[in-house]
Amino acid sequence: MKLTIPQGDFDAYLFDCDGTIVDSMPLHYVAWHKMLAEYNCPFPEEQFYAYGGLPVETILEMLNEQHGLSMPVKQVAHEKELYYQGLVHTIDGIPMTIDHIHDKHGKIPFAVVSGSPRKSVVDSLEALGLLDKFEVLVCAGEYSKGKPHPEPFLKAAELLGVDPKRCLVFEDAQPGIDAAEAAGMQWVRVPLPKERLAAAEAAR
């Protein structure tokens, strides 16, 4: 299964991390399930994927409001990330994205634009030996408005010194795609794990 890249030339590639470069979403869901179970907070898998790209603290605030809970947002977010970091050594990359990283590395600059904390992003990329491929990382806590607001992508373009209209975004979740469109950037969607699995089974 390959990604279809929009026609034209681009001056930079901007990548979401989890679910786009790193096949980490299932592990993140394990970490979420572990932490939220302590507060009897439901978080169906479909909802988890729909919230892809949102900062962890934002998701917790939304869940508190939805379920009338008062989970300590910063504490739970911290514990969730610690639990994920204990799993990160088991992650795999997403080949259809990594192919484009290797193909364009050294030809145009790259940035990662993520709703995860910087340590989580660094640990994930280091686990795959990809950290040195990226000139810029823009992570949770480093912008005032997260996806679907365009700010994170616009900040990455500014740090790279590239016109936003000349950037191509790789994303797996709708909030990130909405953010890319709002930033005036073209985008390519990376299929979700179940979609990649279905395509692989169909190709057998």
Rank of each mutant, 00 (worst) to 15 (best):
T90M: 15
S114E: 04
A200E: 14
V112C: 10
T20H: 04
W187I: 00
D132H: 14
I101N: 06
V188P: 05
I94G: 11
C139K: 06
T97W: 04
G129C: 11
Q47K: 12
A198H: 09
G106A: 08
T97C: 02
P44Y: 06
H78Y: 14
R204E: 11
C41E: 02
E135C: 01
G86C: 08
D123A: 15
E158S: 12
A140R: 02
Y51N: 13
C41L: 04
P109C: 14
A157M: 04
V88Q: 14
F10S: 01
E142R: 05
G176M: 09
Q174D: 15
I59K: 10
P55S: 01
P109N: 14
A157G: 05
K155T: 09
Y13C: 07
V188E: 01
D123G: 03
G93Q: 13
G93R: 11
V88E: 11
A50S: 12
H100F: 15
M62N: 12
P44F: 00
T97N: 07
R204F: 08
L168Q: 02
E65C: 05
K165F: 00
E61Q: 12
L63I: 06
L87D: 04
P26Q: 14
D23K: 08
H149I: 02
D92V: 02
L197W: 07
D99M: 03
W32T: 02
V76T: 06
E201L: 13
L54S: 05
H100E: 15
G141K: 02
K145D: 03
A111W: 08
V122T: 13
V30Q: 13
T90D: 14
P55F: 00
